[in-house]
Simulated assay, not measured.
Amino acid sequence: MTLRRVSVDPLRQSIEHLGERLPRRADATVLLDFLEDDLREGLDALGDVESHFTELIAALRPGTLSPRTLVDVSDEALVLKRLALLEDVVLRLRRRMSQAAGMMRQPPTT
């Protein structure tokens, strides 16, 4: 018999915790799905931005430092797209969190 290790997804757990506090309605379920998608998309974009800065720092190390490397690694097109996406995600998250807060204030339906 082998034991499978189940990985814990803190984002999923957080969404489930919020779901426990929201009314059991279709619009709340949809909101939770969108919220989770936005959070994952934002974290993915942040990872790309972090990767860009890591590459910039690596290019400054003695073994890799050259004019060509500096020009290549400084291409900002991808990171600027990801920052624009991140801005959009942050605005969507603000709206969705406000919607969730409003739903939490509503009296439970029976």
Rank of each mutant, 00 (worst) to 15 (best):
M1W: 03
A101T: 06
T69Q: 12
R21S: 12
S14D: 06
S98T: 08
V90T: 05
T29H: 10
G47Y: 02
G19H: 10
E16A: 15
L46A: 07
G19N: 08
R12D: 15
R61L: 14
R95F: 03
R82Q: 05
L39M: 10
L78R: 15
Q106H: 07
D72H: 06
I15R: 13
T29L: 12
Q13D: 15
V30P: 00
T54S: 12
V71G: 03
A59M: 02
Q106S: 09
S66G: 04
D33S: 08
L80I: 06
V71A: 15
D27R: 15
L39S: 01
D48G: 09
S51K: 11
V73T: 12
A26D: 11
R68E: 15
A100I: 08
L65E: 09
V71K: 10
D88S: 15
L35N: 01
M97H: 08
R94G: 00
T29Y: 09
E20V: 04
D44W: 01
R68W: 14
R96T: 06
M1S: 10
Q13W: 09
L78V: 11
D37C: 03
L70P: 00
S74W: 02
R12G: 03
R105A: 15
S74K: 02
L93I: 01
E87Y: 01
E41C: 05
L56M: 14
E50H: 09
Q106M: 10
L78H: 08
H52N: 07
S66M: 04
L31H: 07
R24N: 05
P62K: 14
L70W: 04
R5Y: 03
M1F: 11
Q99H: 04
L3T: 07
L60I: 04
L85W: 00
D72T: 13
S66L: 05
Q13F: 08
T29W: 05
P67T: 13
D9T: 06
R92A: 05
P67K: 13
D44S: 05
A28G: 01
P107D: 13
L83A: 10
V89T: 03
A101R: 14
E36G: 09
R21T: 08
T64D: 11
I15F: 06
F53G: 02
V8F: 05
R95N: 03
E55K: 07
A101V: 06
S14L: 14
T29P: 00
A101L: 13
D9G: 02
L65R: 14
R94T: 00
L78W: 01
V30M: 11
E20Q: 15
V79C: 03
A100K: 08
R12W: 04
E76I: 05
M104S: 08
R61V: 07
L56Y: 01
L91D: 00
S7R: 14
I15L: 13
R21P: 00
P62T: 13
T54I: 13
S66T: 12
E87D: 11
V71Y: 05
R94L: 00
R21L: 15
L83I: 10
L22Y: 12
A77D: 12
A45N: 04
T69D: 02
Q13M: 14
I15N: 09
S7A: 13
E36R: 14
D88V: 14
E16V: 09
V8M: 07
Q99D: 03
L18H: 04
